[in-house]
């Protein structure tokens, strides 16, 4: 927004410094996570950021003795498939709820919104029985099906589609575009920032999902990263250096996805029709 050139005022310097301090605070726990992954088991409780004897042994162990690469592949697949599906369906529903007037619209919206209010912890048992009845236990489809649409995404997209001016859509209708094409070719590009945001959230939500993947998978070939990582937590002790190492490795790809999509958020704003 306010990109008006102004001389650097002391007020701006203060704002910038505060933001910077905040950013450092935000990053501190993560820096410690990375630092712990380079320490030996008996040293990770020390405060020193850089150990006196840094080691790569945790990383070597992770890749040599666990199925980490397989978990990684599974996580990528599950997260990507869910994200693509959520982006399409949630924006379709959000768009319909925002831009069409029809009887039962409010009810459908509240009903979908209300699905956010049941904790997953309570749904896993019915889901499990459902998956069993459809023969989906211990399969990729079984892993993915509870998340191919989300109430959250519908809500998010509805809120953003509401700010799309009706005139744009009506103009397209006059041009004779079909309703579906108006949605994909006119409406969707107008909410690119929201779509990128939804993509990030969905990807991450699936990337870190734990309880359902744990329940639905039985064979180690289908474990996702969080399920695999938690096997370092034992009965009486946890191999924290391994959990930190795994978490560090697991954070990197999401970081890249984020940095990649972050650009799209900006570009979406510049190219989009919302600048008025």
């Amino acid at each position: 927004m306010t990109k008006i050139k102004a001389p650097v005022s002391p007020f701006r310097i203060i704002v910038w410094s505060l933001l910077f301090i905040g950013a450092v605070i935000m990053m501190t726990p993560i820096i410690f996570m990375f630092s712990a992954s380079f320490k030996y088991n008996d040293e990770i409780y020390e405060l020193a950021l850089i150990s006196s004897e840094p080691t790569l042994s945790n990383y070597i162990y992770l890749f040599e003795n666990t199925e980490f690469l397989k978990w990684f592949k599974n996580s990528i697949f599950v997260a990507l498939a869910s994200t693509v599906s959520v982006l399409f369906f949630d924006s379709l529903v959000g768009y319909t709820l925002a831009k069409f007037r029809f009887r039962g619209r409010k009810l459908v919206f509240i009903a979908i919104l209300s699905t956010l209010m049941i904790p997953t912890e309570m749904l896993v048992i019915p889901w499990y029985i459902l998956a069993r009845d459809f023969g989906l236990l211990d399969s990729y489809i079984g892993l993915i099906f509870p998340g191919i649409m989300t109430g959250f995404g519908v809500f998010l997209m509805k809120q953003f589609f509401e700010s799309v001016p009706d005139d744009y859509l009506d103009a397209a209708r006059i041009d004779g575009l079909s309703e579906f094409r108006i949605f994909t070719q006119i409406a969707m590009p107008l909410v690119t920032p929201a779509l990128s945001a939804l993509a990030i959230f969905t990807f991450l939500g699936n990337w870190t999902a734990f309880l359902w993947p744990l329940i639905v998978t039985s064979s180690a070939e289908l474990f996702t990263i969080p399920v695999g990582l938690s096997s370092f937590s034992g009965e009486f002790q946890s191999e924290w250096e391994m959990i930190m190492t795994g978490a560090a490795v697991a954070t990197l790809p999401t970081l890249l996805v984020f940095l990649f999509l972050q650009r799209y958020i900006i570009r979406g704003v510049i190219l989009g029709g919302l600048k008025g």
């Binding site: 029985i129 236990l137 744990l214 329940i215 039985s218 399920v227 938690s230 096997s231 937590s233």
Partner: peptide, 21 residues
Amino acid sequence: QTTFPYAQYRTKVAASVGAGE
């Protein structure tokens, strides 16, 4: 043989045996 993380082992057994698996 199949193994599960310790902390969720009971959860897993309960959910699956409950569904006849």
